[in-house]
Design a protein around this nucleic acid. Sequence first.
DNA 1: CGCTAGATGACAATGATTTCCACGTCCAGG
DNA 2: CCTGGACGTGGAAATCATTGTCATCTAGCG
Lengths: 148, 148
Amino acid sequence: MIVGGGLPGEVADAVRDVPSGRSTPQRAAVLRVLAACPDFVSAQELHARLAADGVSIGLTTVYRSVQALERAGLLDVVRDDAEGRLYRRRPAAGHRHYLICRDCGRSQSVDADVVEEWAERVGECTGFSAVEHILELTGVCARCRVGS
Amino acid sequence: MIVGGGLPGEVADAVRDVPSGRSTPQRAAVLRVLAACPDFVSAQELHARLAADGVSIGLTTVYRSVQALERAGLLDVVRDDAEGRLYRRRPAAGHRHYLICRDCGRSQSVDADVVEEWAERVGECTGFSAVEHILELTGVCARCRVGS
DNA sequence: CGCTAGATGACAATGATTTCCACGTCCAGG
DNA sequence: CCTGGACGTGGAAATCATTGTCATCTAGCG
Ligand SMILES: [Mn+2]
Ligand SMILES: [Mn+2]
Ligand SMILES: [Zn+2]
Ligand SMILES: [Zn+2]
């Protein structure tokens, strides 16, 4: 099965970063489609988009790919109440937080330094170690507010 | 089926707060067991504990009860990575955040005023309305660290 | 005491994710 | 060149929390 032409350099780099990973056309395709998605997508949506792109790939493999990419820290994950996990290519370095529209799914990243510092302090004060955090903001974006 | 003796006053009060709710033995039992649980529990665990208490109640009803209680704001909810939602009776008033041990599940509430203010500010600055947030902290508690 | 909207619970259905497993693909020796 | 085995793939089946269905019950009111 043909999976796609040359990779846009940056994507090829990312493929290489996946740990214990052999480079396969499928993984490259997942990463390529992911790179073209501005917003969070579910594994299933990803699968559909890949199919629409003419890429034949098993849903199982899509799941495995996003799992690997998540472990590798290349994806941000967010959990929707209705569906399961939603994935998005991590824009820059490090970990970020997003404000997501509950209506249309549009997302924008927010500056959460305040929270990062606070979380670190909490770790120190409580006797807990290896403190991690999940922070999700949801709301209704300006565009969806008028449309309602 | 016998559901239990007299309700510990406070629980009876809470039952009354459930919106559009009729007072049934099952709901009272759910709330009573929930009040006796120091940590977060899943709907299924709740069902098991009820059974252990000699309360015969359908799993479906347990789910409906926690849903109603969540809507009524009487429960705090967090989402476990593996299982689904975990519930706990909301200790005092308003919304809180917790630091949960990834090993043993023990939880303690944290003071997140800083984050609350920050979240409000984000809402104002981004043009989003009705901004809500989910914030969960996880770590390894002191007790589990030595035990590992 | 009846009536009825609301509540219950056994069972089936849903749906995302995972597990199985038989089959490809790649590469390091021989 | 072969060949073995480790890794990757993907269809199908399994898992599992949660929700829907629907016949039956009951709390609460007049
Ligand atoms: Mn953060
Ligand atoms: Mn908060
Ligand atoms: Zn929107
Ligand atoms: Zn612990």
